[in-house]
């Protein structure tokens, strides 16, 4: 306990939910592929490829379990420019959030795009992932995406 302004007692309160979750057969495959620096999507009975993959087709509810390789490049379908990143954001300098449709996918995944300046962002632009040095099977194994041909 610390005494704040006006003699009020204050204490930090950290909310934690220390659960472990099983990711299941479809998300588990997606995260295992990320660990190997690859992307996989799931093909539905209607032939659509969902990335990020789910165990069901959100339009029909039918089960989906056929994994197919996608990416690594993709196209920005919409984006938002963050000039003042928040503490929990993945980059600590100005960047874009974007929905990215990976090559071979019919849906888009959320991630960050690092272009340095807003004027370099455009819907329809091609981007490619920047992988972390250490991958653990998490969506954050991709540090961010960057314009194709940057590195």
């Amino acid at each position: 306990m610390a005494s704040g302004d006006g003699g009020l007692l204050s204490a930090s309160h950290i909310v934690e939910y220390p659960y472990r979750r099983s990711t299941g057969p479809v998300m588990g495959r997606f995260f295992a592929a990320l660990r190997d620096r690859r992307f996989e999507g799931v093909k539905t009975a209607r032939g659509r490829v969902l990335v990020p993959p789910t165990e069901y087709d959100p339009q029909t509810g039918e089960a989906a379990d056929e994994m197919v390789p996608v990416g690594p490049g993709g196209v920005v379908t919409t984006w938002a420019w963050v000039s003042h990143p928040r503490a929990k954001h993945p980059l600590n300098h100005p960047f874009a959030w974007a929905l990215i449709q990976l090559d071979g996918a019919d849906t888009a995944m959320l991630h960050a795009v690092d272009t340095g300046v807003e004027s370099a962002m455009q819907t329809g632009m091609r981007v490619t992932p920047r992988w972390r040095a250490q991958t653990v099977g998490s969506i954050n194994d991709v540090a961010c995406f960057e314009p194709e041909g940057t590195s």
Binding site: P52, R86, K88, H89, L110, S138, I139
Partner: peptide, 13 residues
């Protein structure tokens, strides 16, 4: 908690 929340995206973004 798998694809979206760990990225740290907020409601305004």
């Amino acid at each position: 908690p798998y694809y979206l929340s760990p990225l740290g995206i907020d409601s305004i973004s």
